[in-house]
Design a protein around this nucleic acid. Sequence first.
RNA 1: CGGGACGUGGCGAAGCUUGGUAUCGCGCCUGCUUUGGGAGCAGGAUGCCGCUGGUUCAAAUCCAGUCGUCCCGACCA
Length: 580
Amino acid sequence: MKAGVHMKLGEMLGFRFKETPSDCQIASHILTLRGGYIKNVGNGIFSLYPPGKRIAMKIEKILREEMDAIGGQEILLPVAMPASLWKESGRWDAVGSELMRMKDRSGADMVLGMTHEEAVVHLCRDAAQSYQNYPFMVYQIQTKFRDEPRARGGLIRVREFTMKDGYSFHASFEDLGEYYKKCHQAYVNIFRRCGIGNRVVSVKADSGMMGGKIAEEFMLLADIGEDSLAICTACDFRSNMEAAECVVENAPYEDSPLVKIPTPGIKTIEDLAQFCDITAEQTCKAVLYQRNATDEFVVIFIRGDLEVNETKLSNLLGGEAHPAADANESFPCGFIGPVGLNLPKGAVVIYDRSLQNAGNLVTGACEEGYHYKGFTPARDVPWIAYSEIAKIPEGGLCPQCGKAAIRLKRGVEVGHIFQLGTKYTQAMGMTYLDRDGTEQVPVMGCYGIGVGRLIACVCEANRDDYGPIWPMSVAPWQVHICAIRAENEEVNQTSNELYTSLQKAGIEVLFDDRKVSPGFMFSDADLLGVPLRAIVSPKTLARGVVELKTRDKSIQKDIALDGALDEIVALVKEMMEGTA
RNA sequence: CGGGACGUGGCGAAGCUUGGUAUCGCGCCUGCUUUGGGAGCAGGAUGCCGCUGGUUCAAAUCCAGUCGUCCCGACCA
């Protein structure tokens, strides 16, 4: 990477502008556009200008170093591959339309890789046939294509993106577990080195329908996040809300008989609680879903103050479901209750665990305009069985320490590590011979980080109103020289000497010697976010100094021309170490 | 896949209701003057007004279709 390591701003492709693009909502999206880092090509598809590409390369360097440090071997898998591989694993049928499918000239089915488990098993199954080959980890930095239903937020959520994906292979689950910890630590290191260590947490993630596997997501805490996180303020419990167990305690109740009461026009839990002068916790509500596949109804009874966690619902049903239409002929909506319920064909009923040990509740009477009071599930519903299907609420009980200290926060997923198990190795017939000569199926882990999303997250977490403030470790350049009035001979000479000597000292330098006004120059510098700025102007030269400023404004000082080079080099080194 | 909004020089917008010479700011080019937080003056270039069809003497403007983009929701190995 020769060109671009040092660069004159006037020669660099790209431009910066001050108008906020009208259709941007997210700060990092606005700033990466305004700063000339990215250009939108199509829905969720971007090109990178030199500054964007250079940040990507810096991040990739960190990724390589951390993957190599835990024994990773870099490989490269194809972007386009024959569908036969995906048919082998079963995902040709299992995955929806986010998998980009196409035909080649001979009519053969092809796919664009959205993840590379198939390709990596294909690569490794011939190369690791002996227990002596295990364990090992391979990784790549490669383009992924996912035909997302909805791209958004610049680089936050795109259809085509660069990803570091790693795959480890083990002879046992225990060994995978040990390696997984190392990988977790490597990820912690990566985010620290990218300057967002203080904003990224790992949370327990939903492992989908496979169940029983361990997975964690690394989340940048930010209001723009698409995920809700349940974080305990009393202990170290942290979970994606969709994977968090909801634990509730029900207050003791007096046993009272089931009595039908008229409740004309009372349809919502809020109205019902007010009407009966009770809290929402003393009600039992029905939530109606329909299976996506068959439209069959799913009736969920849950404590009135809680909501349904749709991820848990999907896992329980073994398929997706959507909220049923408000009005339908099968149910008296607003008055649905467990007693006297007439189920249409194919419908199922689920009782949430929040109803366990609850009693004397108010619930629908399955008759327009009536509710029951005194409903006690264990008494009034024969054969009742409970499932865990509620969303953990703000202020709810922590499932780990039991204190009512759960806070909900938003997060952006920047990394995901997953103990896959044998799903792919099994399906694709990858085996090795163990010490006894017995055929065994290796156990896999996978580990992913999206490079572009990480760029956006670093920007999101490090910025001010004027532009990004890149950490030294990922900044497109380390030092930005502003030569104000470069047509002045002395300014020209001094700034050029500084430019040359910094290059010789191994510093990555961006040099702005354009003949533009200082304000214009500084605005561009702010948008480019280079962490250290050296300003040379007739004013500074009259004092015999160069002005040194950090982008975050923590340092602003004059340094003597003589020692300028050494001082800048030292400061760059110091700022690098902050994120080493 | 539902709901909403928007497509007008490179960028950001006005014009559309009520059809009639393509408008403003930024940027770009030339020259002069400026120069520590997006300078001033003068001159100049750049438009299938997303696309297709319809109505009309006449369409950026009205109608239909279509493609694209963005936002909200659903979805997200």
